[in-house]
Every structure is written in structure tokens, then in C-alpha cells.
């Protein structure tokens, strides 16, 4: 991905795992950017997505819905999603809304990548 705006998500691409950075406020606009980025990566063969929330201070209802859509799409394609660097406030919200039951949570991209690479290296992701 080319160098994005400060608040825009960015992704570091490797063959099977991609890291997408959420901005400081995940709403309709930034959520759609995350969604586009994730879909593009999955279409190119990514089987594991890491969404890094290190800059995220707020996720609104539309942002939550879009993240749920990304998780569902990944599920349909046999890919997995990890959330990393989630702040306590956002983590509580994700827990209450059930998102944490659908994704892998990790403190850092490295630990998420280690788990996901293991996952994506398995045939059919299993």
C-alpha cells in the first residue's frame, strides 16, 4: 500500500498475512478504507489479517459494523482475523459487542503474526 494519510489505515503485505493499521477514529470513512484494504489483501491470497488499533481512540457504531463485515468476509474465505494493540476502552466495547469472540487478540503484531502464520501455513487454514 502506498504511504497513506496519517489517519488512514496502512498495510504491510507479506504473502499470506497482512497487517492493516486502523486510524485514530474508526467510523464510516476510515472503516470503509480498512474494509477495502482487507478485501484487496484477501483477494490477493492473504489468509490472515492483523488489524492494528494502536492509534485508535474511538470506534463508532458504523465502524463496529464494518469490522463485523470484515470478520464475516474473512470467515467466508477461510481467512482469520487478529486485533492488536487494542486500547482498554475499545477492548471493553469489543467484548460487550461480542467481537472478541470472533477474532484473535494479541498485544503486538509479532505475537499475532506468529499465531496466524502458523494458522495460514496449515492446509486450508486449519
Amino acid at each position: 500500500m502506498s504511504e497513506p494519510l496519517a489517519a488512514a489505515p496502512k498495510a504491510e503485505l507479506c504473502e499470506l498475512v497482512a497487517v492493516v493499521y486502523a486510524g485514530d477514529y474508526v467510523n464510516k470513512l476510515s472503516g470503509q478504507r480498512i474494509e477495502r484494504e482487507c478485501l484487496t489483501r484477501m483477494e490477493r491470497g492473504c489468509r490472515a489479517l492483523v488489524i492494528n488499533f494502536r492509534d485508535t481512540e474511538l470506534v463508532n457504531s458504523i465502524g463496529v459494523s464494518i469490522l463485523l463485515g470484515v470478520i464475516d468476509e474473512a470467515e467466508r474465505r477461510g481467512a482469520r482475523v487478529a486485533f492488536t494493540n487494542v486500547s482498554l476502552h475499545t477492548l471493553k466495547l469489543f467484548e460487550l459487542l461480542g467481537l472478541t469472540r470472533l477474532v484473535l487478540l494479541a498485544d503486538s503484531d509479532e505475537s499475532a503474526l506468529a499465531t496466524l502464520e502458523e494458522f495460514s501455513a496449515q492446509p486450508n487454514g486449519h
Partner: peptide, 11 residues
């Protein structure tokens, strides 16, 4: 629809 789904974590 996004708002409603996101408000309650609905898939």
C-alpha cells in the same frame, strides 16, 4: 443498517 448492526454487535 450499519448503525443498527454496530450498536448491538449484530452480524
Amino acid at each position: 443498517l450499519h448503525v443498527v448492526l454496530g450498536a448491538m454487535g449484530i452480524r
